[in-house]
Every structure is written in structure tokens, then in C-alpha cells.
């Protein structure tokens, strides 16, 4: 069985990249605005469906993905305006319920438009990379590369722009950022726009690998929350490494123990991390005053 270890490791990294890609947008919104955005799964789903619709209408995949992401950015800002902004200062439970409501409304709307039948976006990159040690599809390579590019782009925005500085300041101390004259409207819009765009890109790329359907966002967003807990909420590095770690654990459990234990393994890991290191691998412990 050890001869399969390298292949299973690559499988785990490929799966983990998909988790990390979804978790990136979620951790950004959660980290900056403290919104547990369950509707992030629907950004992912709408991104996939819009790309599918545009590709079916004859557009090039990459162009369709870009247009889909723009539409989902608009959707993200709308969701913030309608579902979250009126609840500023409300307890976290209210935000969570509002997020769940937005999620369900988007799922039902998608069902009305596209029906519940599963479909896959025609893949823009076909073929398989065969090496003496492992096999990986070119589309999986594209997903992994997109993860690296996304992280690099977010890092550049956060660390090399004034907007990024404002976002980081807000994430560190909301009240102090306000006192410094930072526009919260701008920060919210930018955070939701980046988060929604990441969700839409993840949806388009993964929709070319996995079936898409209106409730397709539910499971990935649950896994993304697991990733956030593993990696530490608000930590980009945590989202990436947490996602890769979760993918590896799931694949190793399925490959070496049993496929029936795959999800049990992931959620057992979640409980263990919560017990041993509640702030996650890369999160910082916070003291409530």
C-alpha cells in the first residue's frame, strides 16, 4: 500500500487545494467583518452556474469565469447591503441566521432558474500529467496554481495597497480604524467584493471538475469552516495550510482506513483541534475583556 503513498499525497493536496480555495474568501470576510458568511457557498454556486451558462452560450471559459466573478461581486455587495449591513452591532447569532437565510434564498432561486439537475462545466483544460510516481489531471494542476495565484493576489492587495492597509486595520481593531478615519463602507465593499470573487472563481474552476447543482455550496462551505477552525480564523496562511491538511487527512483516511470513515476523520480532527488548540494552527488567542 505504501507504493500508493505518493499518489494519495497528490490526491490529498489536490482535494485540499479545492477546500483552501473556497476557504480563502470565507476567512477574509470572517476575519475582517466577523460575519460567519454561510452564503459564501452560494457565491461559489452562482459563480459555477454563471460560468456554465456563459460557456454554454459559446463564451470562452476564462472570459465566462471573469464575467461570472464580476456578477458575483455585485451579488456579494447586494447580500451585504440587504442581509448584513442592517445588522451592524447585532449579536453574532443574528448575523448567522441572516447568512443562513441568504443562503437558502439563493439556493431556491438557483433551483428555479437552473433546476436541481447536476451538470458539469466543460473543462477548459483536458488531459492528465503522468509521472513515474503519480498521476494528476491538468485541471487539478490549474486549481492548485489558481490557489497560489489567489493567495499572492490577496497578499499583494492587503500588503501593498492603501485599501489593504485599511482592511488590515479594520481586522485588527474596528473602533480604532474608525477613529483613524477609515471608511467602513469602502472596507466592507472591498472585503465582500474580494470574498465573493474568490468564491465565484472557486465555483467556476471546481465546476469544471465536479457536478454543479443549486445546493453544491453547502458541503464545501461546511468544510471551509472546518478549514478556518484548523488554520485559525482570519489567517490566509491558515486557510491554505488548513485546507491542504484537511484534504490530506480525508484522503489518507479513505485510502488507508475506509471510505466510510472519510467524513468522520475530518470532523474528528475538527473536534480535536477545538479541544487542544481552539484558536487553530495559525490563529492567535484572543482575550475577552
Amino acid at each position: 500500500m505504501l507504493d500508493l503513498f505518493l499518489q494519495q499525497t497528490v490526491n490529498g493536496l489536490a482535494l485540499g487545494s479545492t477546500y483552501a480555495l473556497v476557504a480563502l474568501g470565507l476567512t477574509l470576510i470572517f476575519g475582517v467583518l466577523l460575519i460567519p458568511n454561510f452564503a459564501h457557498g452560494e457565491f461559489y454556486m452562482v459563480g459555477a452556474f454563471l460560468t456554465y451558462a456563459l460557456v454554454m452560450a459559446g463564451l470562452n471559459f476564462w472570459l465566462a469565469m471573469a464575467l461570472g466573478a464580476l456578477a458575483v461581486i455585485a451579488l456579494g455587495c447586494l447580500i451585504d447591503l440587504v442581509a448584513f449591513r442592517p445588522l451592524r452591532g447585532a449579536p453574532p447569532l443574528s448575523l448567522m441566521i441572516s447568512a443562513l437565510a441568504a443562503s437558502i434564498i439563493l439556493q431556491q432561486t438557483a433551483t428555479l432558474i437552473w433546476t436541481s439537475e447536476a451538470r458539469t462545466i466543460p473543462t477548459p483544460v483536458t488531459g492528465v500529467l503522468r509521472t513515474p510516481f503519480f498521476i494528476v489531471t491538468w485541471m487539478q494542476v490549474v486549481v492548485m496554481a489558481s490557489l497560489i495565484l489567489s493567495v499572492a493576489a490577496i497578499w499583494a492587495i492587503l500588503n501593498r495597497t492603501r485599501l489593504g492597509l485599511a482592511i488590515r486595520a479594520t481586522a485588527q481593531n474596528h473602533d480604532a480604524a474608525l477613529l483613524m478615519g477609515i471608511s467602513m463602507v469602502q472596507v466592507r465593499l472591498a472585503t465582500f467584493a474580494i470574498g465573493a470573487a474568490l468564491g465565484a472563481i472557486a465555483g467556476a474552476l471546481l465546476g469544471a471538475t465536479f457536478p454543479i447543482y443549486p445546493t453544491m455550496g453547502v458541503n464545501p462551505v461546511l468544510k471551509a469552516f472546518v478549514v478556518l477552525v484548523l488554520g485559525g480564523i482570519g489567517s490566509l496562511r491558515g486557510a491554505v495550510l488548513g485546507g491542504l491538511f484537511l484534504g490530506l487527512v480525508e484522503v489518507m483516511v479513505a485510502g488507508y482506513l475506509s471510505t466510510e470513515l472519510q467524513d468522520i476523520g475530518a470532523f474528528t480532527l475538527l473536534v480535536l483541534v477545538l479541544l487542544i488548540r481552539p484558536q487553530g494552527f495559525f490563529g492567535t488567542a484572543q482575550v475577552e475583556r
Binding site: Q7, T209, F210, G255, T259
Partner: peptide, 20 residues
Amino acid sequence: EEYYKLGDTDFSAAMTKLVS
């Protein structure tokens, strides 16, 4: 004999095992 559930998307671990 391997198992999956409706809505699963990644079967690579089981497939690697089966293909071997």
C-alpha cells in the same frame, strides 16, 4: 467494496486503491 454518498465529488482516494 468501497462506498460513497450522494453529492460526493472526490473519489480519488478510493479510485487510487481500486485501480491499484
